[in-house]
Simulated scan of single mutants.
Amino acid sequence: MISAEPLPCQRHLFEVPEDVSYLDSAAWSPLPRAVRAAGEAGLLLKSRPWSHPRAAAAEGAERARAAAAGLIGAAPDDVAIVGSVSHAVATAARNLPLRPGGRILRVADEFPSLCLAFDRLAAERGLAVEAVARPADGDWTAALAAAIARPGAPPLAVATLTPLHWADGGLIDLARLAPLIRDAGAALVVDATQAAGAMPLDIARLRPDFLAFPTYKWALGPYGVAFLYAAPHRQGGVALEENAGNRPPAAGARRYDRGERDDPVALPMAAAGLELIAGWGVPAVAARLRALTDRLAAGAAELGLGPLPRHLRAPHILGLAWPGGVPEGLVAGLRDRGVFASARLGGLRLSPHVFAHAADLGRCLAALAELRRGA
């Protein structure tokens, strides 16, 4: 049962030293102790296969599938196990019947894994690609809504979107945009890499054609595991890679499962991380992360580092606009002071997870103040 109390710091479940302020979970998250233990148990299974029933690996795949489905409010039968988000996006692109003359909509400076397969598709089928420019006021949702409805534009064929901009956490309200996309007769493909596990996602409300996310960021899992939700009317397509496991009688989204699916190491790790999040509840995780980024935003604003307004940013990623762009050596200077963050598209990206606490925020802000004076 999920507690109604605010989620306290979960640092005791991780191996993050007290002198490390790790604010870079949007790049990759540390593994919780339980997730590492699941991986070690899987290594033992593979090291001594005669000591373990082979069916256990297949059971682990279904456990991970069910946990991934639960995270986004989907049914397990509607979720495929794939190797990466790029694998998932390529599967979606392969199975959308897009006609020449239509338009593919995305935001500017989108992450390549959401773009490359659709760029190829556009070239092959005569589709236009429209990348909506970064809005001066920071309101991506309004800019995208205007682009969807723009008079004289080619008909919208597919929108390939994310719930937030990966570089700075700028919010993209898919719950508002999804009905506009459907009303335009277009498909919706969602890359939830920077959202799944850190902010609520509701398949029933968004009704995407496809939605994908990996586990190595906010879902607290390993590399090499990702999940693809396919709407029921999109489940009759062709997998990117065909194998004995995803051919009939496999049904539903299992038709898109990857080869060598039943990894006895990575899938139990993925399941363990997803189940931790389910125990906390994604709304509780989002509320804790919002409190952390709000405190960082207030301190950064005092330093003149220009965060987005609160209502225009996601709860868990804070982009800071360093005047003149992030100076060379800033990220290294932070690291030397025990603070870990990333430079992205000319700004500084801070992304705490549930192990971060007040001392981490204080160390970060003190380091930023010192480096700002030096600059």
Rank of each mutant, 00 (worst) to 15 (best):
D262H: 14
C364N: 07
I277W: 01
A75I: 07
D191E: 12
H165E: 11
Y256G: 00
G319N: 08
A239W: 01
G83L: 10
A358K: 07
L211K: 03
G42F: 02
R254F: 00
G83A: 14
E110S: 10
A159V: 02
D119H: 09
I203R: 10
I172V: 15
R94W: 06
L43E: 15
S86W: 04
R247V: 15
L368M: 07
A80W: 01
A80Q: 02
G281L: 08
A64G: 11
L45F: 15
S84C: 08
V85W: 00
G170D: 01
L345M: 12
I277V: 13
A90C: 05
L308C: 04
R176M: 09
V35G: 03
C9P: 12
L188V: 06
L206Y: 02
G346S: 09
A57C: 13
L318Q: 06
G83Q: 09
S51Y: 10
N246I: 06
E328V: 14
P151R: 04
G324A: 11
R349V: 07
D139R: 13
P222W: 01
A297G: 12
A253R: 03
P163H: 04
A37P: 06
Q194P: 05
A272V: 08
A356E: 02
L127P: 00
L127R: 02
G245P: 03
G197I: 09
A332L: 10
G102C: 05
A108M: 05
A41H: 11
G102R: 11
I317D: 01
G221Q: 06
A159F: 00
V82K: 01
Y22H: 13
A375D: 15
V189D: 00
L292G: 08
A358P: 09
L45I: 14
M269N: 04
R33P: 06
L206G: 04
L296E: 09
G102Q: 15
G221Y: 05
Y256M: 08
A146D: 15
G329C: 11
T162H: 06
L267N: 03
S29V: 02
L114Y: 04
R372S: 12
L371D: 05
V238Q: 15
A231P: 09
Q194S: 11
P222A: 05
A41V: 03
A136G: 13
Q10T: 03
L305W: 09
A64R: 03
V285C: 09
L330T: 04
G259K: 13
